[in-house]
Nucleic acid binder design. Structure first.
Lengths: 136, 136
DNA sequence: ATAATTGCAAATGCTTTGCTTGTGA
DNA sequence: TCACAAGCAAAGCATTTGCAATTAT
């Protein structure tokens, strides 16, 4: 069964290898936002000979093709997710690292307005909320 | 003449040395968001014997004391600014790296609401707009 | 066939740190 | 005085890269 990342590779003309297919599948199956180490652990379960350098090269390749997104949240390593259908931002639990995705159209509009008021065309943005769970 | 960072060091009980005084002054006089290399260049003009390790240690010390803020904008090195009186966010020119500060209360409120709706207390956030100048 | 990809280890870039000497309060 | 800071070079960490061997098309 082809993973959706594998599909996108074919559509974008990204050459597929065994390693890339495995990494694609692992990322397609990931619901979270793993870093390269974590991805390497997961792909290693499928093929233990895949080197971490290949994982680095592959996520970079996928990222440049717009197939996966890279996030540099606070705290060191880059984390990846499959490019989503619609844009979303992230709330990071400062205690557990758990990530919740959210969309807020009002904020999106305001960001655009702010940029325009300052004489800029908004090309990209980064919005991350860091919070701690409210216990009830 | 004491720089405002130097003042804050005294208030916070941060021990002052010649090097720290110089770094404090350079940061107080900086209107931009320099990285450690740039800071080291600037302090070197005052005292060429200050090592970059000291600059690293000092900005970290100031940051931990809440006297300066560290930003990890896209593109590698951490950049610093004196802790501002009121919170602001940043718009980064993707062509020049130039940074414009802005405040938008509506966005601030919405962020808090989003976090709460998701069951979180908002502790921190990161909002960065990346744009290109509109030529008129 | 042959241009691209892999694995490995070495190199990188930013940042931190151990150690010895120097210094602020 | 004496705990703390500075300078230097070495170490750390995430990530990238050169190279020889391997592989996809």
């Amino acid at each position: 069964m082809k993973s959706s990342i594998e599909d996108k590779c074919i559509k974008s003309g990204v050459r597929l290898t065994d390693q890339r297919r495995i990494i694609a599948k692992v990322m397609s199956n990931s619901e979270d936002h793993p870093d390269v180490d974590e991805l390497h652990k997961r792909v290693s379960k499928v093929d233990s000979k895949i080197s971490i350098a290949t994982v680095y090269r592959t996520v970079k390749l996928f990222e440049e093709a717009g197939i996966v997104f890279k996030h540099d949240f606070k705290g060191g390593k880059a984390r990846y997710e499959q490019a989503p259908d619609e844009h979303h931002d992230h709330l990071i639990d400062i205690n557990t690292g758990e990530i919740t995705e959210f969309v807020n159209e009002d904020i999106e509009k305001l960001q655009k307005q702010v940029a325009e008021k300052l004489g800029y065309k908004l090309v990209d943005h980064r919005l991350e909320l860091y919070g701690s769970k409210i216990k009830k």
